[in-house]
Design a protein around this nucleic acid. Structure first.
Lengths: 231, 231
DNA sequence: CGCTCTATTGATAAACCTCAAATACAGTGG
DNA sequence: CCACTGTATTTGAGGTTTATCAATAGAGCG
């Protein structure tokens, strides 16, 4: 692959700081795939064969339980990796990855990635760092869903999205992830009825406004201090 | 360190399958520490400096929220590692580790472990595998606490402990982890009142019996099929 | 302009938590 | 071995939060 590709890899969590030959090697083994519409990139339960690096677009990672309830485990945005679990032998994808904004992904298969990790140990260490960060995040959310009431969980979730994907605008901060009430419910462990009630009340207080599944936070200060208030 | 030490390391997830010199190196850099009573091995929020390998005994990893509610993130038993997060630069422990059964631990400091990972890439890959497994487990529990009712969460938790730490006895399966009602509540995201009610009802049905914080499962079949029943 | 998917909102019910009080239990020191 | 003390557990009553159900309104898409 070309120099653009190498530069791109250099700026990712997994490949940052590696020697030139490692980048070239990684770029050479990468394959590319377009991601459209509401396509499913991989299914929960399928044999996990590829590690993906999202170049553009956005994914949501969902888990289903036996009754069909959906839980959103994480969103994946540009420059982020997913399905690192594929490096394990005989792993299956623990989640389903659904494209929610079109884009494209680079991907490597298991054996290639394992070889890269062996040849350039820095990659394995970076992968470890990434996964540890994810572990910390989900542990945090596990704590929240275990101990906080719904309204605060939603507030904290928005606060987190503000930090992670917030875009300053004249009117406030726009959360740049398309999210329905149901998505937010599946992310916070509640129902879309309850999310709707909470969001409506915040709209009445002028804290937020929703336009076509994008949330605009008009009063981030109020929202964040509510989220972090331990009373 | 001696040959016993090396053999011990060889049988852990992190060091398995490594060349002899790697084991010797790892064993040489390990320090050892006795763990007594209800000692705190490390505190949530403290700078994370060491990776621990539990040789004997048991830990519980707890997180506290701002209101002081406790959540049990995971139990660590003999032969298991914890605080792998210490390999990250400037990390803090995301949990508090409390000794619940006396024993002893080997430990390495951050830089040593990072050097080992660089020198023997297999270690980093194994660490990645371990953390991925933990990530999968907590995602599973996150799904449960988000979608299942308390009674089923408790049943699934016991089912999991049966698989992980169950000991067959004449009367049934003993879960070899000392666990109060409150512990079980902090593990499943509920209150000890509710746990007590659920466990009492199971004791009446002869599914379980509790003796001094150890749970004896008299009817594993009933418990497990209830846990996995999706009705 | 109709169709479908999403959101809102009220009414009701269920699950679960909180509080209070009583009981059981384990560990300790005599 | 026993009494004592503090901790853990049980259980009832009552309240709160949140889910569920139903009906309506709205928004985007072809």
């Amino acid at each position: 692959m070309n120099a653009t590709e190498r530069n791109f890899l250099e700026n990712t969590d997994l490949f940052t700081g590696l020697p030139e030959n490692a980048l070239a090697d990684a770029a050479n083994c990468a394959k590319c795939r377009k991601l459209g519409g509401r396509q499913i990139l991989f299914h929960q339960g399928d044999p996990a064969e590829h590690i993906f690096l999202l170049r553009a677009g956005r994914l949501k990672l969902v888990q289903y339980n036996e009754s069909g309830d959906e839980v959103i485990i994480r969103y994946i945005g540009p420059n982020e990796f997913t399905a690192m679990v594929s490096v394990l032998e005989n792993a299956v994808y623990p989640v389903t990855a659904e494209v929610i904004q079109s884009g494209e992904a680079l991907f490597w298969d298991r054996n290639t990635m394992r070889r890269l990790m062996r040849d350039y140990p820095g990659i394995a260490v970076h992968a470890l760092e990434m996964v540890l960060k994810q572990l910390g995040e989900i542990q945090e959310r596990f704590k929240e869903v275990s101990t906080e009431i719904v309204e605060k969980r939603i507030a904290r979730t928005l606060a987190r999205f503000i930090r992670h994907s917030g875009i300053k605008t004249a009117e406030g901060i726009l959360i740049d992830i398309p999210m329905s009430r149901k998505d937010l419910a599946d992310f916070t462990g509640t129902t879309f009825y309850t999310v709707s009630r909470v969001m409506s009340s915040w709209e009445r207080s002028q804290w937020i406004r929703t336009e076509n599944r994008k949330i605009l936070v008009l009063n981030p200060h109020a929202l964040i201090s509510f989220a972090e208030d331990f009373a």
